[in-house]
């Protein structure tokens, strides 16, 4: 059974306005790593908010692990299953010590203290922040803060984490840390990842890339399939990773290069 299923979902913020999402049909299997790209205003963030019931659809259904988000009785359970990480790390941290911040969620669930202790330690270890557990969050770097925010979500033991542009405010080092962390969580802990981003190069390690445009799913496929259609993506105001575009241009010059997604693959194909 699919972990998340959207069936014919529409969403409008008010009846007066044009819908932000139109007839979305989407299935995410447990264990998948899905990247969502699309221009500003394409509906990506709204879609994300439907997945852990920050919003409910105007029409259609969102089903999480068999539970319909329209049913208020399911909300708490769904929010435990699907955790959310946002763009700005400073808006997500509340406590004065890292480990208190991570414990905040489980405490609210009424989980007994020894269990919380275990969960917090495990969560901080999973994001590589165990050494910082006594530090005040505001002294951490952006990437470290974002990893603490992710640990806070992991401590809820979710099956899926939705990340809405988690690296947008980070420097290259911070971006790398966060991307490595979410790939680790996906591969080693089996957590389903739904990752929204404007950085095309962050999507090449995903199992699937979904392209959103004007409230609809424009395309869905393997990164290689999606980035093959360079002109199509550019029409939507999107990019392809630079190395993909370089390979594309070199092919036009008669250089034979197989389908590639990374600098390593390009260099190996030219100079093996």
């Amino acid at each position: 059974m699919a972990l998340i299923e959207l069936r014919g979902v529409d969403f409008s913020y008010s009846e007066m306005e044009t819908p932000v999402l139109k007839n979305i049909n989407l299935t995410v299997e447990a264990g998948e790593f899905v990247s969502i790209i699309g221009g500003n205003g394409s509906g990506k963030s709204t879609l994300a908010k439907l997945l852990n019931v920050l919003l409910v659809p105007s029409a259609g259904e969102v089903i999480v692990d068999g539970m319909n988000t329209a049913d208020e009785e399911n909300w708490l359970k769904i929010r435990q299953k699907v955790g959310m990480v946002f763009q700005n790390p400073d808006n997500q941290l509340v406590a004065t010590r890292v480990e208190d911040d991570v414990a905040f969620g489980p405490e609210n669930l009424g989980i007994p203290s020894p269990e919380i202790r275990k969960r917090v330690d495990k969560a901080l270890e999973a994001v590589g922040m165990e050494k910082f557990k006594d530090n005040p969050p505001h002294n951490l770097s952006g990437g470290q803060k974002q990893r603490v925010a992710i640990a806070g979500v992991i401590a809820m033991e979710p099956e899926c984490i939705v990340l809405d542009e988690p690296t947008a405010m980070l420097d290259p080092q911070g971006r790398k840390e966060v991307m490595e962390t979410i790939h680790f969580l996906n591969k080693e802990k089996g957590i389903t990842i739904i990752h929204i981003t404007h950085f095309m190069e962050e999507t090449v390690g995903a199992d699937r890339v979904i392209v959103m445009n004007q409230g609809s799913i424009h395309k869905s496929g393997l990164p290689l399939e999606i980035f093959r259609e360079i002109d199509d993506l550019k029409k939507l105001g999107l990019d392809v990773p630079l190395v993909v575009e370089l390979a594309h241009e070199l092919r036009k010059k008669g250089v034979e290069i197989p389908a590639i997604l990374s600098i390593n693959e390009l260099v190996d194909s030219l100079c093996s």
Partner: peptide
């Protein structure tokens, strides 16, 4: 890796020119 391309280029178009010029019609360096 031995392909003697210039490294002070910052535009895609120029990089494409430089790489294909250095490859000299071959597809391998």
């Amino acid at each position: 890796k031995g392909l003697r391309v210039r490294t002070d280029i910052f535009s895609l178009a120029e990089a494409v020119e430089e790489i294909s010029r250095e490859l000299r019609g071959s597809s391998k360096c």
